[in-house]
């Protein structure tokens, strides 16, 4: 549920965890990011930075500049002035990311895990079975059949947690146990009901269903999309995956390597909560792509 009164929980001398509710819920996450934007705009003296997540915001502050109590009351006043959720609309660019499903890169990673750590079923087979799909083609069709909402950013630099906006495309997946010691940069992962693009070569626990040659984080800031910022995605942005074959994948990879790949982004796109709710109401949940 979304709490009537948000909770302000202390995290030592310089952090507060503001909990707005206790479930995974799109409306609640939208509220978290709308409030985070309002707090940032307010430029409260002594507030250092925010870590917004699914249902909460961790706030770091300098207690020599603002007290816990004053920061709490200032944030609460912004929260109370937010207005109705239904009326909220925000600029929400859509990033198009090409994916080669059931690819060679993640297959090699899975084989390496089986050889060195423990035998396990091929990741896409797990998703197909668990979600009652008829094969890899349907897995790709469903995974690429919806826009995703960036619900959180972090864990590792540039890692975005993505949730499906079309409830008919929501999949579930268990996590690797034990986790992998490495995952290739660009791996498309699925864990719980969250999907992601691995921003770098890192350990990981999500099932691997595909791979993209397109980077989502670049600390060297070499490609045009990273000139302003080294992480591509922000909470409140959207992602749309589109399936590509090996030939197109190789072409895109060559453009990335050459340093002239242009990310495909609809920067003009807005997101209206009212329109989204109305659309949800028209869906037949028994339909499947």
């Amino acid at each position: 549920m979304i709490y009537d009164e948000p909770k302000f929980l202390p995290g030592g001398d310089r952090f507060i965890e503001m909990e707005l509710g206790d479930e995974l819920n799109f409306d609640l996450n939208f509220l978290v990011h709308s409030l985070s934007a309002k707090i940032r705009e307010a430029e409260i003296a002594g507030l250092i930075e925010l870590l917004p997540n699914m249902a909460s915001i961790v706030i770091s502050y300098d207690p020599d500049l603002i007290s816990f109590a004053d920061l709490k009351s200032e944030i609460l006043s912004h929260y109370r002035n937010m207005g109705s959720l239904e009326d909220m609309e925000l600029l929400s660019p859509i990033y198009y990311i090409p994916v080669l499903y059931c690819d060679h890169v993640t297959r090699a990673c899975w084989e390496d895990y089986c050889a060195k750590i423990t035998e396990k079923e091929y990741d896409s087979d797990i998703l197909v079975k668990l979600n009652d799909l008829d094969g890899y083609a349907q897995l790709a069709r469903i995974h690429s059949g919806t826009e995703y909402w960036v619900a959180a950013l972090g864990f590792y630099p540039g890692l975005a947690s993505l949730i499906a906006l079309d409830p008919r495309c929501r999949l579930t997946a268990p996590k690797y146990n034990p986790p992998r010691t490495w995952t290739a940069k660009g791996t498309i992962g699925y864990g719980g009901s969250v999907t992601c693009v691995y921003p770098a070569n890192t350990p990981g626990g999500y099932q691997m269903i595909g791979h993209t040659p397109v980077p989502v984080c670049d600390i060297e800031q070499s490609l045009p999309a990273f000139k302003q910022d080294l992480a591509l995605l922000r909470p409140g942005d959207r992602v749309r995956f589109f399936p590509v074959g090996r030939e197109e994948y190789d072409y895109i990879e060559s453009r990335v390597t050459a340093g002239d790949y242009v990310h495909n982004v609809a920067h003009y796109a807005k997101f209206s909560i009212r329109a989204y709710h109305e659309w949800l109401g028209t869906l037949d949940m028994k339909e499947r792509f």
């Binding site: 995290g11 310089r14 952090f15 965890e17 206790d22 997540n53 699914m54 909460s56 961790v58 959180a152």
Partner: peptide, 10 residues
């Protein structure tokens, strides 16, 4: 718990 941000020192 549901994913949340981690304070330093937690």
């Amino acid at each position: 718990t549901i994913d949340h941000g981690y304070p330093i020192g937690a």
